[in-house]
Amino acid sequence: MDRKKEAQDKDMGRRDFIKKVAVGSAVTAPLMNFQIPIVRVSLDELLQKHFKEMSEEEKKRVIERLEKEHRERYGVDVKIKTTEPLKGVVWGYALNIKRCIGCRRCVYACVKENNQSRASPEDPTVGEIHWIRVVEIEKAKIEPGTEGTDFRTKFGDVKVGISLEEGEHYYDPEKVPEKEYIYIPIQCQQCEKPPCVKVCPTKATWKEPDGVIVVDYNWCIGCRYCMAACPYWARRFNWTWPYLPKDEINPDMHYLGNRIRYRGVVEKCTFCIQRTREGRYPACLEACPVGARKFGNLLDPESEIRKIIDEKRVFRLKEELGTEPKFFYYMD
């Protein structure tokens, strides 16, 4: 026991050394602000620790710097939180595909809430980033298995099936819903066994105690291995700097959620971590005009989401891969 603690202390000592050099004193401050040319990264940013290894004090200092960065880069005063996950909670999502009309209001509510890049009017290479994709599938193409097979999960029985190979997410009719189609909005499925977390070479993405997969945008090296590993195409890469007009920025931010991303890092849906940890619903749910989206605590047997899993016909995407999504699709 003692030895383990000793090793930990030593570990801390080593990191503290870097940190001591890195922050604080008036002598080193100008040095730390030094920007490495071409990549334009300050030493302070470069020497920042992994989020999970930071003490409360370090987090506070990093947040201060990040808020300053937001001010300088985007001209807005933002508040970046590090709210901890709620105890005894594992978030789950359920979506009624019989109700979804494919209007994409969830997509744009998400963009607004989570500060995704907008299309730049000046630079055509800077496009919109969407965390939610609504896939349109011909009703006839839904696998027969959808309506039948039971599959036992930790949180109740679900049904199997739906092939996405025939999907189309650029559908653009005059009016939705179209008669012969169903719509399947897909965002991060917050897998219980996330392949993206397994493959990340730097532990820059991980599963939080409330079941949400998050990314430390200051630790991601941008190798995009997680994107190759994700069976749901839920991860987005910042191929360039995001474009965000000043007055469209949501200043209520979370470090692991909707703060504005850097160029060269991966981002994804967090079930609106900045809202849900304060008892609010995700933005996509609130935007849904037909009430197709349900959200709640999977550990609470009385919750609405558990009732849906227990009583409705439920399936998860690509069940056969064993990723155990906490995003459930259902029909009534």
Binding site: I36, V39, V41, L46, T202, W219, C220, I221, G222, C223, R224, F237, N238, Y262, R263, G264, V265
Partner: peptide
Amino acid sequence: DVGRVDRL
């Protein structure tokens, strides 16, 4: 290939 070579 990496997006953030400074963090390698």
